[in-house]
């Protein structure tokens, strides 16, 4: 199936859906606080974009997501490493980690807002929390599974801990860790948004609650539109990184 054909079909589908949307709002004479027509929405959106206010909301959420994801990955990998290496830590932390992993970590959001305030910090902390867990668990489980043959070789060559990590452990753990990262990243945006919905002064999630309070569906839709784009963008980045790093699979 040619790629260009798929794109054409996709564009046609999107256009058809937008046309359907327009038709529905017109035929059923739907009030714009309930569902604005596409025309109305895009006019609003471009105006909003031009005022520059939208840009600051976008950058707030982007900051939270990217900084949070970055540090989440770092924390996840560091802790994952230590958990794999220390039996004590593993027995102590693993049960808690697994409980936290399966529970809705978002529940902590109100606490973070209480502790870190309405600003960016609480959301970044939330994203770090959400992102670090899958990575921590993926890495510690991957490290433990590494073929002992590799580690024995390393021993024979008197490699130090850092060398063992970078040359054997990291590459072998890569596959599982990257899967963990993909899972974590998809949740990063959701976490940032939820954090903003629960208490914030800016950001795309904040726009959602603001729009809800004022029954301004245009504002809500703008936020949803941008968040979806962000989600798509992050997903594509992950795909590209995965392909580049795991070229040998």
């Amino acid at each position: 199936m040619k790629k260009s054909k798929i794109y054409i079909e996709l564009c046609a589908l999107v256009i058809a859906l937008i046309a359907l949307w327009q038709a529905i709002t017109v035929i059923f004479d739907i009030p714009s606080y309930y569902l604005p027509s596409p025309v109305e929405f895009f006019t609003y959106f471009s105006q909003f974009l031009q005022t520059g206010k939208l840009a600051s909301h976008i950058s707030t959420t982007l900051y939270e997501v990217f900084i949070g994801t970055f540090w989440g990955i770092v924390v996840g990998m560091v802790l994952g490493y230590f958990i794999a290496k220390s039996k004590v830590l593993e027995h102590l932390l693993m049960p808690l980690l697994l409980i936290m992993q399966i529970s809705p970590k978002i529940s902590i959001a109100p606490l973070f807002i209480l502790w870190f305030g309405l600003g960016l910090t609480s959301k970044v902390a939330l994203v770090i929390l959400v992102v670090s867990f899958p990575i921590m668990i993926a890495e510690s489980s991957a490290l433990k599974k590494i073929n002992s043959g590799y580690t024995e070789l390393m021993n024979i060559w008197h490699a130090n801990k850092w060398q063992v990590f970078t040359r054997v452990e990291l590459p072998c753990a890569c596959h599982e860790v990257i899967s963990g990262i993909k899972i974590a990243v998809t949740q990063a945006i959701t976490s940032a948004v939820i954090g903003e919905m629960m208490g914030a002064k800016a950001g795309l999630g904040y726009l959602l609650t603001n729009g809800a309070e004022m029954y301004d569906l245009n504002m809500i839709l703008s936020s949803i539109f941008l968040l979806s784009l962000l989600g798509l963008f992050l997903y594509e980045i992950c795909q590209v990184v995965e392909r580049k790093v795991l070229y040998w699979k």
Binding site: G205, L217, S228, Y235
Partner: peptide, 26 residues
């Protein structure tokens, strides 16, 4: 399936939690 796949992927990657305010209004 071919037609809906891109749509499904799109819905999977967008934070559906953002739909809450809309649902509350509706």
């Amino acid at each position: 399936k071919r037609l809906s796949m891109p749509l499904l992927v799109f819905f999977q990657v967008s934070p559906k939690i953002a739909l809450i305010p809309i649902f509350i209004i509706w």
